[in-house]
């Protein structure tokens, strides 16, 4: 691949410049990954900024011409877990988030709550959530997601599959219905919206 060869020999400021130019284009994706991972805009931007700083500091360990998006996502992910270890216990099922969410939903005064999918995502175990985000939204192949998460491809596949089933189950159970909506309406809502969206996508 000659394009790779062109940049891989660069050093010093010229290399930094090439690195930075590509890194800048990844910022929106890092923010999106952080947002969907944490479910919180402020926390997400802190996380994404930390990841950006780390990526810059580690720029010499990155080989230009290889997949910078996957590399930065891995940095962000590692940062997320190290933050989480510090503040929370890392459990399979995020029980606290689940309880907070359910409480918020039960509260009729609850202001414009997160939409149903966000809520469903929030109660997924973190590793299922990240797998679903990477493969289902981030555009990564299973192999790439496995590299990012540091696990086997089969593990990613099974996490994605379990995450999908869980999200669907949560939505269908109507656990997040509010304002007297009938059970299962969350799913109906998503179906309707997806239909509307798919009309405008691609």
């Amino acid at each position: 691949m000659s394009a790779v060869d062109d940049v891989s020999g660069l050093t010093g400021p010229a290399r930094d410049k090439v690195f930075q130019k590509e890194l800048v284009t990844l910022i929106p994706h890092l923010r999106a990954f952080a947002r969907t991972l944490t479910g919180d805009a402020t926390q997400a931007d802190d996380l994404a900024q930390d990841a950006l700083i780390k990526a810059w500091d580690a720029r010499l360990s990155f080989q230009l011409g290889t997949n910078m998006k996957a590399w930065t996502f891995m940095i962000l992910r590692n940062q997320f877990y190290s933050d989480k270890r510090r503040s929370w216990r890392s459990t399979q099922l995020d029980q606290e988030a689940a309880e907070r969410t359910l409480m918020a939903v039960d509260d009729p005064e609850s202001p414009v709550a997160l939409d149903e999918l966000r809520q469903a995502m929030a109660v997924l175990p973190a590793e299922q959530r990240e797998a679903l985000i990477l493969v289902g939204a981030g555009g990564f192949a299973y192999e790439e997601a496995a590299e990012i998460c540091g696990c086997a491809v089969g593990t990613v596949k099974s996490r994605v599959s379990r995450a999908r089933k869980a999200v669907q189950g949560i939505l269908e159970a109507g656990a997040y219905d509010r304002d007297g909506r009938a059970a299962g309406e969350a799913m109906g809502h998503i179906l309707g919206e997806a239909e509307r969206l798919s009309a405008s996508v691609r």
Partner: peptide, 28 residues
């Protein structure tokens, strides 16, 4: 339903991708 969830998930992600990047990022 799975497909609907997939579409929605990508929308959720792309919404953020399409937001303007806050200046703090570029400042870093």
């Amino acid at each position: 339903r799975q497909r609907a969830i997939g579409v929605k998930l990508r929308q959720m992600f792309d919404e953020v991708v399409n937001e303007p990047v806050p200046d703090e990022f570029l400042e870093i």
